[in-house]
Design a protein around this nucleic acid. Structure first.
Lengths: 226, 226
DNA sequence: TGAGAAACCAACAGCTCTGTTTTTTTATTT
DNA sequence: AAATAAAAAAACAGAGCTGTTGGTTTCTCA
């Protein structure tokens, strides 16, 4: 939604130099925000150009000025979404403040909670929509692959930072896979009906799995060729 | 695809009584098969009435005779898909022959493999498409809910049959949740790129989780109020 | 075998979405 | 202040999808 429609901005502001560029950036941003909003609330396929324009309070003509085709809006949107998710991810890492005063088990539990919170953000819902659409849309698929890799890297970096003594890549990868698969699967199911009672038990079980992988890795690292 | 187009069927067959009813059932079936095929290969949103008709080798007019509206085809399709999945599920249970000669661990591993196979069937892909679409389509959502419940019941029945001494519902449910969430999540990711090396480790970890839940349940059952 | 029903087909109208073009408004620059 | 460039709006044409209508073929049963 356009928070500052041009005619709502005071005259003084509007006469400053560089105002036009600023306005342009604003509507561009409003369009991207609206696109994400539509993907979340109407699904990827139903996100039409007019729907986006309506929700951004921008004429469709103005939109084609910034993005000539529908595909242009959407590819710009997924890039923007990707940035936003990376940002939200980093914010969560800070918020949860996973410091080394905690035991390994406590750290693991905190990370699990954090990742769960991340997965249930609305931006992850949007991402799921796009991911699912990409299954039958080669162009989308191509555009998404590098972004997916970047995210996995970010996750592995987090783990490395938190558990400096966890070196065996095999168990780290498995932990990553188990966590993301389980949490996305759960989120997918929960997006449809919330059953918080059961999710707590699942999160505990996930923490168990990760802990067991961690312990195994530690064991094998100490006696590599036993 | 229509395997037996009416004009390909021998005259003798075509003159038997009840032929018309049989033919009608055949095209109806062909339409439902085609619909599932389209959902798998083009996605739910792209599954248009003409696409289905084309793939079923049936005129669009003939289709509207059996299913007046698009929504009619699709609701019939998801019901049919549901039946098919139940059937495939039962077939897998038989095929894997999980008998009591195996140890608990072996049984668990077999079930995990079986469910994984089930989740990766193309009919599960179709189901995922529908599930995802139902998030933003209230009508679909309403139609899907009872079917979802029926499936969970079927799964719980399987576990009860296999582990008669596993009585605590809490751990059974958690095991169910962990397994389905993890496997759907993994499938969702694999539908896009196959990485079999890593999936084996994930399956092993899942078996660990289930086993640990089983052991805990057994322990708590023996000393209920300790 | 002939009347009536069921299955099937083809063409059309209305709607929505996309992309293009034309026109108007709003900034910037000299 | 005028010329030029950028942004926004409006109107239009083409394509695809849905649902409807009227007509044809195929089967059934008396």
């Amino acid at each position: 939604m356009l928070k500052n429609k041009p005619n709502r901005v005071p005259r003084s502001e509007r006469q400053k130099a560089g105002w036009q560029a600023k306005k342009s950036a604003m509507t561009r941003q409003a369009i991207l925000d609206a696109a994400i909003h539509c993907i979340i609330n109407h699904g990827y396929a139903q996100t039409t150009t007019s729907l986006i324009a309506d929700h951004a309070a921008v004429s469709r003509g103005a939109m084609t000025h910034h993005f000539p085709s529908r595909s242009d809006v959407l590819t710009a949107t997924i890039k923007f979404l990707h940035e936003r998710r990376l940002q939200e991810y980093r914010a969560l890492v800070q918020e949860y403040d996973i410091n080394s005063k905690l035991t390994a088990r406590e750290q693991i539990e905190t990370v699990v909670q954090m990742v769960w919170k991340f997965v249930t953000l609305s931006s992850s819902t949007a991402y799921q929509e796009i991911l699912m659409a990409s299954r039958t849309d080669p162009e989308l698929k191509r555009a998404l692959e590098p972004l997916e890799k970047e995210f996995e890297e970010a996750f592995l970096e987090l783990v490395k930072g938190l558990f400096p003594r966890w070196e065996r890549r095999e168990e780290i990868e498995t932990a990553h896979d188990v966590a993301t698969f389980l949490l996305t699967g759960m989120n997918l199911s929960h997006m449809r009906s919330r059953k918080n009672l059961r999710s707590k038990r699942v999160l505990a079980s996930l923490a168990d799995s990760v802990e067991s992988l961690y312990r195994r890795a530690r064991r094998l690292e100490l006696q590599p060729k036993a």
